[in-house]
């Protein structure tokens, strides 16, 4: 089975469309959306509708912290994220808010766990930025493979039994063989707001038959998304910051 992963779409329609087009062209049997459908980006309603549509066709979707904050509030967020969520709430139908905030925190499929932030406490949204944090997550699940988003930086952590974890940054389009006697945690890069200094939208593919994991980067119309952000009712300085982030990928 070929499984496509999209994480951290963040209301960026052009980036999401580009990833769906690329993954569709390469072919997949299962789509997994790893949370944060909205927040920051200018098209939250369109992205939510699209995700619901994909879910109806079989995609698995988990809740991200930005999705959750639509109901739980934004107290744990930084100012930029908080104000973007306040604006996002004005652009979503009550039905969409209900949908996004009721998504499950994780999905389990055979040896694979799909979760937005980490496996130890999915609703607390702690980040995995180091091998130690990845190891903590891997030790607290019996799933051999975990797929996450949240940091917006593609990374792969691997660990053999009784040994510490190590990190590896996947290279675009280079399949990584996945061993059956090792634990892995893949942080899938972001569709809608990459932060690894590469502005191209990121999605990932895991082929269960070949046991290979690959990340792909797709160019999209950044100027279009940036322009839409500038045209929102968000404060101008803030919109400018969000737009600029897309161009530098950080």
């Amino acid at each position: 089975m070929r499984i496509a992963f999209c994480a951290d779409i963040h209301g960026n329609r052009a980036a999401f469309e580009a990833c769906l087009l690329d993954s569709g062209r390469r072919g997949y049997d299962q789509l997994v959306i790893l949370g944060d459908v909205v927040g920051y980006g200018p098209d939250p309603q369109w992205c939510t509708d699209q995700v619901r549509d994909l879910q109806a066709k079989g995609a698995l979707v988990v809740r991200g912290n930005h999705d959750a904050s639509l109901r739980e509030g934004t107290s744990s967020m930084n100012e930029l994220a908080r104000r973007a969520i306040e604006w996002t709430l004005t652009r979503l139908t009550p039905d969409s808010v209900e949908y996004l905030t009721s998504l499950p925190l994780s999905h389990r499929q055979e040896e694979r766990l799909y979760v937005h932030a980490n496996a130890w406490a999915p609703a607390l949204w702690d980040y995995i930025n180091t091998p130690r944090e990845a190891e903590r997550s891997m030790r607290l699940t019996d799933a051999r493979l975990s797929f996450c988003g949240h940091t917006h930086v593609p990374e792969l952590y691997h660990m053999s039994p009784r040994r510490p974890a190590a990190a590896f940054t996947p290279l675009t389009g280079k399949p990584i063989p996945i061993s059956t006697i090792r634990h892995y945690l893949m942080v899938v890069g972001a569709v809608g707001q990459p932060r690894d200094h590469n502005p191209a939208a990121c999605w990932a593919l895991y082929d269960t038959a070949k046991r290979e994991y690959t990340i792909y980067r797709v160019s999209y119309d950044i100027e279009l998304t940036a322009q839409k952000i500038r045209e929102t009712a968000m404060p101008q300085a803030m919109a400018e910051r969000l737009a600029k982030r897309l161009f530098v990928g950080s």
Binding site: P131, L156, H158, M159, S160, R163, P164, A165, A166, A167, F168, L171, K174, I176, P177, S179, R182
Partner: peptide
């Protein structure tokens, strides 16, 4: 050099 080093932690 395009794949994880499985000995990285050894």
């Amino acid at each position: 050099d395009e794949l994880p080093d499985l000995l990285a932690e050894e």
